[in-house]
Amino acid sequence: MSILDVSHISKSFGNTEVLKDICFSLEESEVLSIIGSSGSGKTTLLRCLNFLETPDSGTITVKSNKIFDAEDLDYLTDANKRKNRLHFGLVFQSFNLFPQYTALENVTLAKELAAKREDNFKENKKAILESIKQEGLDLLAQMGLSDRKDNYPHQLSGGQCQRVAIARALALKPDILCFDEPTSALDPELTGEVLKVIKELAETKMTMIIVTHEMSFAKEVSDKVIFMDDGYVLESGTPDEVFNHPKEDRTIQFLSSFNK
């Protein structure tokens, strides 16, 4: 049983069709890398999974629950959207940390707000907040940032910011964690620390979808690779199939541009 089934997703902005009949599925604990040239629709696909964009057609199914169906948009109230998007986490290229909160507060804020929405919050306030804080500290420790918990984003390096952002996404325990070019905004010497954290997550059997231009990283960490071109999934398979034995001319062309 797949953890994620994406079926016939398409999306247009005005007259330009950016995603065209996207289909793929993902098993639990798998790591999927999405590669492809600029403008091929990778970011848009992640944004659709996270309900930041609404696809024009298709369905998205997580753990056998259809969480999106373009035929049934009435169901997509704000509250349902909020509930369903929590199956996914999203790590942005530009981190998007909250500048007025410390590293730890960035990690715990959403969890605290969610807890406050629950009925039983008032009675157990102290215990709940304490456990959220402890989880936040554990996540920062996992990211190697224990000593940075009280720093504000502007006091952190890009690599540290991105690791805080990963901890923030993990705090809500998503089924599938998505990364949109997590190292593209970083200086080359800082990409290593972020890729290392993602590799460690893969070892803990986290299900992940990673949009990346780091080909050797994608080869190493993924179970599955998708090559996107002009809104289509042009080729997909194991890293060996896609990187070493690509079938499509466009894939060969794209990959060769990285080996110069």
Binding site: D78, R82, K83, R85, L90, N96, L97, A110, L113
Partner: peptide
């Protein structure tokens, strides 16, 4: 205020008011 702030809040399941 950059839209990334809205989007980060949204994907973390926050309400618009929050």
């Amino acid at each position: 205020i950059p839209v990334g702030q809205d989007e980060a809040g949204l994907v973390l399941g926050m309400t618009k008011k929050e």
